[in-house]
Simulated scan of single mutants.
Amino acid sequence: MTDGERLTIDDEILARARIHARGVSREYDLEVDLGALEWSVSARAKRRAGACRWNTRREVATIVLTRRAYERYEWEEFAAVVRHELVHAWEFQQFGESGHGSRFREKAATLDAPRHCRSFAEPRYVLRCLETDCEWTATRHRASKPVTSPGRYWCGCCGGTYEVEHADSGRTWTTSSGYGGAKSALGEEW
């Protein structure tokens, strides 16, 4: 390192992830071409701890790891995220596609990688079915259309109506005008 240069947390994340990937590749005989794998860190992601993107034209997988997850997880849990994304990279390199189906689950189990990673951020909105015999709920981090216009969508379980709750304030709404009213009423607290 030269004068004026210093390692950042992103450098630390990438270094630890690459070292872990080499170890996993050797220990589990994972047929992933680490030389054809790119790495990056996201400072913006709020829900997912990692992602693996496939560039079909270049036939290169890019593993994107989330800084906030690294800061919130212990290393063992974050290392499991790296293994999860390595399974996606392996699938992309071997089959040109990846998902969370049976092939993924089988390979992930051999690497002790979770099928889904724990959320590291609290949701901003909670969707809750209004039907008395249904206990369906869902969470959202962004003001998507089901959040801003709940009257146009239905419960994911029974098909009934649902309400949206702003998690921090407890305000609820069932229509797009209700969303606008809650947002306006909360002002700076939104």
Rank of each mutant, 00 (worst) to 15 (best):
E77C: 00
F78T: 06
F78N: 04
F78C: 10
F78M: 08
F78Q: 11
F78Y: 14
F78G: 10
A79P: 04
A79W: 02
A79Y: 06
A80N: 01
A80H: 01
A80D: 12
A80S: 14
A80R: 13
A80T: 01
A80E: 15
V81P: 02
V81Q: 09
V81K: 04
V81F: 08
V81M: 07
V81W: 06
V82T: 10
V82R: 10
V82Y: 06
V82W: 08
V82C: 09
V82E: 07
R83E: 14
R83I: 02
R83Q: 11
R83H: 07
H84N: 06
H84A: 04
H84K: 03
H84E: 02
H84R: 03
H84S: 05
E85V: 09
E85S: 07
E85W: 03
E85Q: 12
E85A: 09
E85L: 08
L86E: 03
L86S: 01
L86K: 00
V87D: 03
V87M: 04
V87Q: 02
H88D: 04
H88N: 05
H88Y: 06
H88L: 05
A89P: 12
A89H: 08
A89Y: 09
A89W: 10
W90Q: 01
W90C: 12
W90D: 07
W90S: 02
W90G: 05
E91Q: 15
E91D: 08
E91P: 02
E91R: 15
E91T: 05
E91M: 15
F92W: 13
F92R: 01
F92K: 02
F92T: 00
F92A: 00
F92S: 00
F92I: 00
Q93D: 07
Q93P: 05
Q93A: 10
Q93V: 05
Q93I: 05
Q94K: 13
Q94R: 15
Q94M: 12
F95M: 09
F95S: 13
F95E: 06
F95C: 06
F95K: 14
F95H: 14
F95R: 15
G96C: 13
G96V: 09
G96P: 12
G96Q: 14
E97T: 13
E97I: 07
E97K: 15
E97P: 00
E97L: 08
S98M: 08
S98I: 04
S98G: 15
S98K: 07
G99M: 09
G99C: 12
G99H: 15
G99N: 15
G99S: 15
G99P: 04
H100W: 09
H100N: 09
H100K: 12
H100M: 08
G101A: 10
G101W: 04
G101T: 05
G101D: 11
S102G: 07
S102H: 12
S102W: 01
S102Y: 07
S102K: 14
S102A: 15
S102P: 10
R103Q: 12
R103K: 14
R103H: 11
R103N: 12
R103Y: 03
F104W: 09
F104T: 11
F104Y: 14
R105H: 07
R105D: 06
R105F: 00
R105V: 11
E106T: 14
E106P: 01
E106H: 11
